[in-house]
Design a protein around this nucleic acid. Sequence first.
DNA 1: CAGCATATTCAACAAGCGTTGAATTATCAA
DNA 2: TTGATAATTCAACGCTTGTTGAATATGCTG
Lengths: 220, 220
Amino acid sequence: MSRKSPSEKSERILDVAEELFAMHGYDGVTVRQIANKAGVDVALPSYHFGKKLDLFNAVFKRRAVELNESRLSALRNCQNNAGEEGPTVEQIIEAFLRPLEIAQETGDQGWTNYLALIAYVNNSPYWGRKMMSKLFDKLVREFIAALRKALPEARDEDLYWCYHNLSGALTLTLAQTGRIDKLSGGKCRSSDFEAAYDHLIPFSAAGFRVLCGATEVAEN
Amino acid sequence: MSRKSPSEKSERILDVAEELFAMHGYDGVTVRQIANKAGVDVALPSYHFGKKLDLFNAVFKRRAVELNESRLSALRNCQNNAGEEGPTVEQIIEAFLRPLEIAQETGDQGWTNYLALIAYVNNSPYWGRKMMSKLFDKLVREFIAALRKALPEARDEDLYWCYHNLSGALTLTLAQTGRIDKLSGGKCRSSDFEAAYDHLIPFSAAGFRVLCGATEVAEN
DNA sequence: CAGCATATTCAACAAGCGTTGAATTATCAA
DNA sequence: TTGATAATTCAACGCTTGTTGAATATGCTG
């Protein structure tokens, strides 16, 4: 137990780094700030995780596996429950989004910070392509394959642009900039992921249908 | 001429700062990097623009007025061309997006960098709310008002969430992370704004209609 | 208790940071 | 040409950065 699991301070460093990196980006945070906020010496992050970039990677990787498993299981679940023709577009997108509510459900602020960190990386021209691909491409391709099956007449190009739009809307949601709070005068809240997904699912599903052949419903 | 317009090097500093800030964010760029790439002394940015943060603000403000005017004129244009009932959702979104193709049309790389900088700011939890509001809220509210008129049965809450989704998809497009290039195996290109908008306009219009009362078409 | 590996702190380093005051060059009107 | 003003460079400052080697504390094993 004591050997295998990292020390308590080690996890506290990851938690604090997660929060600060999500808020200010990689370059906007110093190792000293992390150490101070975690209540440990400046040298401890280096001891546990090596260089600053290694620490960043450790934070980014930490929850990725669990998140991917959760989303994939949601996809498999809706595929099993669906009939021969497979799940609908709405069901697939739902499986893509709902697992992200884990932050709200568990009340774990760490998950909220992590999702904001994903938004930071995904939107960054410098980090974006490489880091996201490495950890999330496999899963994303599963979802796109499911969507392709639900929209058999779709052209590949249209399918990818639709996913891009969905991904962008999701990214801005995860970033939690508070912008919609101000714009809407408080009627919408950035932190309310459930409301965001309740709107994003029908919103993007309609988009997919329009651009990727809406014959699905008419045929039945 | 010489007094009023800033010197040639002064503009070069802004151009380089724009490019680097868009790529690496505020904290990911040093004043020295900017000066080196611009081919000027380290002290010159401070002389012309003051503190580093003032330089960042100068870059962010520089093209904002022109961009806002261009978008507002596109909105007024489609409003004037439309009949009594006003423009359609598609026409409004088109007016919101097409002016952003100015970068491709003029071949000015500076505009591409600037749009990526907007994406960086808009997606940043720290900078996002304040900086975006200051420069773009007035315009955004014009567009939302036009959309409200085109969708008279819409609940305010739904309208704002729909705009949020549109804004997110646009933001990821402007960021130009190259992620869709890799995902699609080259079938889609991040740099092809025209293709992005050709897809985003019907995509988001369908979303607006589904969530904000689709009776518009059925009634006519 | 002794011994040892791990965890943590301490102290310091070389490098890079933003910024500034003084010195130098360019620009242009008189 | 001279003088004034703006533009630019030069040199340096005090401070912060990430990282490291040695010293100390902690916790477990025997």
